[in-house]
Computed example of a mutant assay.
Amino acid sequence: MSSGHSSAGAFPFSRLAGYEVRCARPLSGGLSNRCWHLTLNTSPHLDAPETTLVEAVWRPDSPISRAFGVHRHHEFQLLAAIHSSGIAPAALAENRHGILVEWIEGQVLTQPPATEELMQLLYRVHCLSAPQWALDVRQKAGHYLASIQPSDKSAPLNSVCQRFFQQIPDRLFPQTCCHHDLGFYNLIRRPDSQLAVIDWEYAAAGDPMLDLALTIQANELDAKAAAIIYAQLAGYDEVTVSNAVQQWLPWCDFLAMLWYYAGAHLWQDESYRLEAHTYLAKLIA
Results as ranks from 00 to 15, higher is better:
residue 84 S to C: 00
residue 83 H to K: 14
residue 221 L to H: 10
residue 50 E to L: 13
residue 26 P to M: 01
residue 216 I to T: 14
residue 122 L to V: 10
residue 169 P to Q: 08
residue 269 D to V: 07
residue 260 Y to K: 03
residue 243 N to Q: 15
residue 131 P to F: 05
residue 152 D to T: 06
residue 266 L to N: 06
residue 49 P to M: 15
residue 143 H to I: 01
residue 114 A to S: 14
residue 27 L to T: 08
residue 63 P to L: 11
residue 75 E to I: 04
residue 256 A to Y: 08
residue 11 F to I: 01
residue 271 S to D: 13
residue 38 L to K: 07
residue 246 Q to T: 13
residue 153 K to D: 08
residue 211 D to V: 13
residue 61 D to V: 07
residue 4 G to E: 12
residue 77 Q to A: 12
residue 33 N to Q: 13
residue 113 P to Q: 07
residue 24 A to C: 10
residue 183 G to V: 09
residue 155 A to F: 10
residue 158 N to K: 15
residue 13 F to G: 02
residue 232 Q to F: 05
residue 239 V to Y: 01
residue 164 F to R: 04
residue 255 L to C: 05
residue 194 Q to K: 07
residue 269 D to G: 04
residue 195 L to D: 01
residue 49 P to F: 08
residue 155 A to R: 15
residue 139 Q to T: 11
residue 164 F to E: 09
residue 147 S to D: 01
residue 17 A to T: 00
residue 4 G to W: 00
residue 153 K to G: 02
residue 233 L to S: 04
residue 128 L to M: 15
residue 33 N to P: 01
residue 13 F to A: 06
residue 127 C to W: 02
residue 273 R to E: 13
residue 189 R to P: 02
residue 279 Y to S: 06
residue 137 V to H: 02
residue 202 Y to M: 08
residue 101 V to F: 01
residue 61 D to T: 12
residue 147 S to V: 03
residue 218 A to W: 03
residue 229 I to R: 03
residue 189 R to C: 08
residue 205 A to G: 14
residue 26 P to E: 09
residue 123 Y to Q: 14
residue 282 K to M: 08
residue 175 Q to H: 07
residue 261 Y to D: 07
residue 34 R to A: 13
residue 214 L to T: 13
residue 14 S to F: 03
residue 51 T to L: 05
residue 43 S to T: 15
residue 68 F to G: 08
residue 262 A to D: 06
residue 37 H to S: 10
residue 147 S to H: 15
residue 259 W to V: 02
residue 252 C to I: 09
residue 207 D to E: 12
residue 37 H to E: 14
residue 279 Y to P: 04
residue 173 F to E: 11
residue 6 S to R: 14
residue 184 F to L: 00
residue 149 Q to T: 06
residue 65 S to N: 04
residue 104 I to S: 01
residue 189 R to E: 12
residue 35 C to T: 14
residue 152 D to I: 03
residue 111 Q to L: 12
residue 27 L to W: 01
residue 127 C to F: 00
residue 104 I to L: 12
residue 52 T to S: 13
residue 240 T to Q: 15
residue 148 I to P: 02
residue 125 V to N: 03
residue 223 A to F: 09
residue 150 P to F: 05
residue 110 T to F: 08
residue 101 V to R: 06
residue 91 A to L: 03
residue 212 L to A: 12
residue 27 L to N: 00
residue 245 V to D: 04
residue 153 K to T: 07
residue 225 A to M: 07
residue 177 C to N: 11
residue 87 I to S: 06
